[in-house]
Amino acid sequence: MNKNIVLCGVGGQGTVLASKLISAAAMAKDIPVMSAETIGMAQRGGSVFSHLRMGDDIYSPMIAKGTADIILGFEPGETVRMLPYLKPDGQVIVSSREVMPVTASLTGGSYSGADMIAYLQKNVKNLFVIDTDKAVKELGSAKVLNIIMLGAAVSSGALGLEKKDIKNAIIEKVPEKFHELNFRALDYYGNK
């Protein structure tokens, strides 16, 4: 089963780790996987994305427009930016929590995450909006937003992976002192 996944957000939100956890989970199941991501100057506070492809007969880590099965969006505006990559019946899982551009105050360029969610609701049939504000508050840390989103994506069945696969990947990739918090974040949405 081939899957094209776009992860997107703002530098610092943990798209790279989320992408690595999905990859590790896929590899543990012997599924070939490739990915490509933003590295360097764009990382801090900039728009960032990961392209992740699972399955056989893949040459390029990059995804063509209109062919992503899933967009996992950590930020509403960045999710809209990646929408051209979604295939017509593709699924979007988006965090409702907006991140203001660092230059917003300077340039007066304000922006509304709610407008972006409204746009997605109008244009994407297969949409899940995740109330990450609530999740972050209850979990007591904004740092696990990426894992909350990953948990929601796994629960939706869209990744073809199970939570225990991601848990094993967390054990492998994340320092032990953060395991418990990450497990709670992973289990926040959907079944364990």
Partner: peptide, 19 residues
């Protein structure tokens, strides 16, 4: 076959800045 590309609403601009 090209999927029709919809025009996107104005998106936040996030240029690189000093930390």
């Amino acid at each position: 076959e090209k999927t029709e590309e919809k025009e996107l609403p104005p998106l936040p601009v996030r240029p690189p800045v000093l930390c």
